[in-house]
Simulated assay, not measured.
Amino acid sequence: MSDSGLLAPGWRPGRRQVNGLSLHVVEAGPETGPLVVLLHGFPEFWWAWRHQITPLAEAGFHVVVPDMRGYNLSDAPRGIASYHLDLLVADVLALADSFGADRFDLVGHDWGGVIAWATAARHPGRIGRLVILDAPNPDLLGQALRHPTQALRSSYAALFQLPLLPEAMLRPLGFAGLRAMMRGSARPDTFRPGDLDRYATAWGQPGRLSAMLNYYRALRRRRRPAEPARILPPTLVLWGERDAALERHVARDAVGLCDSGRLLVIPGTTHWLHLEEPERVTAEIGGFLKGGS
């Protein structure tokens, strides 16, 4: 299978051998430019960043957008243990290594943001600047879930940790359950006709749905730190004003762990802010990566 029909001019598909598996990546921009890695969330794939790739490349960045392990055209190893957060962080570092980058900028949305938080916490010397879109810091998950209303909003994540049942709920009728989840958490204009069909093609790759859910199942197996790690790299947190999954205090608490952090709430947006206000979100990302505050 190929994603060639999704590629815009200047976007270069390829593969990278990372931690014993093959990751599908899309690149754009000058290979000599500063490396920025964009990590997608659940249940998207590299195409999540379709509005950001070209502008960042035109700004001089070497943009690398992977399908994370278990998604779309990247390898999908079996078993919950293959999706431990430690491995996901190692994938990011190994991907940067494959491009010869000792230091790079990192942008993540949703699960990609969770991985980006963890990467910056554990390997601060590797990250130049960090941008997070609507993602909790995993070191603060327990604290966040002590809020009853946030626990209720996160109940879907507890459901996803169950064996077999989530697949049985989400796969039938062309992934009607996943489609409804995305539409129900977004603005009416977020997904254009055909967008969710493209996502469904990625979800339908063998083993991918279970792999995607295994991110949630592996979460309870992670080591809980005695104290949340400080985030040393300069950090920008972008948040959808109307995010139905994550409350605002999750963002504020995460920024509170940053030595140099700023929270910016994008008015009128939901969890899918990078799709709903792409020009604003891209401008904020690009300006911050260029050295803005």
Rank of each mutant, 00 (worst) to 15 (best):
T282W: 07
R262H: 02
L246K: 03
A244N: 15
L236W: 10
R242D: 12
E276I: 10
R248Q: 09
G287H: 13
G256Q: 02
W239V: 15
W239A: 15
R262G: 04
R262F: 01
G268Y: 06
L263H: 05
V237Q: 08
R252D: 13
E279H: 07
W272C: 00
I266F: 13
H249T: 05
H271I: 12
D253G: 14
I266R: 09
L273P: 03
E284N: 03
G292K: 00
V255P: 10
H271S: 09
G286I: 02
P278D: 08
K290A: 15
L236Y: 07
L275K: 00
E277A: 15
F288P: 00
T235S: 15
L264Y: 04
G292E: 02
I285Y: 02
E241M: 01
A254P: 04
P233I: 06
V255R: 12
P278K: 09
I231H: 11
P267Q: 04
H249W: 07
L275V: 02
E284W: 02
R262C: 01
G268L: 04
K290M: 14
I266A: 14
T270Q: 05
P234Y: 14
L257N: 10
V265A: 02
G261H: 06
E284T: 04
R242K: 12
T235W: 11
L238N: 05
G240R: 13
P234C: 15
L246W: 09
L264E: 11
H271M: 10
K290I: 12
D259K: 09
A254Q: 01
